[in-house]
């Protein structure tokens, strides 16, 4: 489409911010495409490929991912430098705030799916598979002997004596765990990792808030100390989560192949853990910016604020997880 030279702006008028053209988007696209192509190839090699065949899928994936992360690093560095150079108008800052807010809303919807799946399965699918109601009438024939309870300690497949006995084709074999993640014996409560994780994550929401107060009081030491503690708590949480997964696989027999209980458990806690790792990275970046660059002032600290909103969001998701995955 034809365009023409923009007219000069009369002096003394408020001007909007319009950034220069930028190569960051196309660079991010290249990184994304390579990593996605690589990741899909890795998975297809694993599931459909010949065992032991030499492919370059991993190389493509790693290179793409590195490229993408490097681009994001440059992108955020540019955005931070622009702000520190005073280029951002109050209006643009508000656009960033709106952007972060609605991004978190989209993340809420992402978790909403998996929680909905959990409730749908627990409230409707399970009883139907066990033959309850009109919707379950046929399941007496398909899955005779299947009793539903939650956590599901016996899959319908196991109820009919394994994959050979099931009337419906599928490619999976599903082995139930011997022990679930639900709260066990009261006298061993201190062994129960989810409780410690809850304590840690809830405290970290408080510590990040104290760090924010320090920032508002222009107290740099308080900000650095409490933000550092928050990052440390986040890493302890992730370490405990890894420990929990290790226990699940080695001690409880709870795996991704454990039927719907294992599926929902790992999906919800896995994506939550991934978001904790993202949030921790964000907070770590803000911490480094504060201790090394002396960034942020009491009235201009969007990077810190956005990260702490994100952190409160993952905390709220954890509370939901704790209630509906571990307790009830």
């Amino acid at each position: 489409m034809a365009t023409q030279q923009g007219s000069a702006v009369p002096a003394g008028h408020e001007e909007y911010y319009v950034p220069e053209s930028s190569g960051m988007a196309i660079s991010a696209t290249i990184g994304l495409l390579l990593s996605i192509y690589g990741a899909a190839s890795v998975l297809n090699d694993m599931t459909f490929g010949e065992p032991g065949a030499e492919t370059n899928s991993w190389t493509i994936f790693i290179c793409g991912l590195f490229w993408f992360v490097a681009t994001l690093f440059m992108w955020f560095r540019t955005a931070i430098r622009e702000n520190r150079a005073g280029m951002n108008s109050a209006q643009l800052k508000k656009s960033y705030v709106l952007g972060m807010f609605w991004f978190i809303f989209s993340e809420v919807m992402f978790f909403f799916v998996f929680f909905s799946v959990l409730f749908y399965v627990r409230v409707l699918v399970g009883p139907w598979l066990a033959g309850e109601g009109e919707a379950g009438a046929m399941n007496h024939l398909l899955w005779p002997g299947f009793e539903f309870d939650w956590p599901t300690m016996q899959t319908p497949q196991e109820a009919v004596g394994g994959a050979a006995g099931q009337p419906i084709a599928n490619h999976g074999e599903f082995f139930s765990p011997h022990t679930s993640m639900a709260f066990g014996e009261v006298e061993h409560w201190w062994h129960w990792l989810p409780m410690w994780n809850t304590v840690i994550l809830l405290s970290s929401s408080v510590t990040v808030h104290i760090a924010h107060l320090g920032l508002l009081e222009n107290n740099r030491g308080k900000l650095n100390l409490w933000l550092g503690i928050t990052v440390a708590l986040a890493s302890v949480f992730l370490a405990l989560q890894v420990l929990e997964y290790h226990e699940a696989y080695t001690l409880y027999g709870l795996t991704l192949n454990s039927g719907i209980y294992g599926s929902t458990f790992f999906m919800l806690t896995g994506f939550h853990g991934f978001h904790v790792a993202m949030g921790m990275t964000m907070l770590l970046v803000q911490w480094l910016r504060s201790i090394r660059g002396g960034h942020f002032t009491a009235d201009d600290h969007f990077g810190f604020e956005a990260s702490s909103w994100y952190w409160h969001f993952v905390d709220v998701v954890w509370v939901m997880l704790f209630l509906f995955v571990y307790i009830f």
Binding site: V125, L129, P156, N170, F174, T255, G259, I260, S263, M267
Partner: peptide
Amino acid sequence: GTSFFSAAGGG
């Protein structure tokens, strides 16, 4: 190997 959409695993 999850079973979200597979009745054999409870999905």
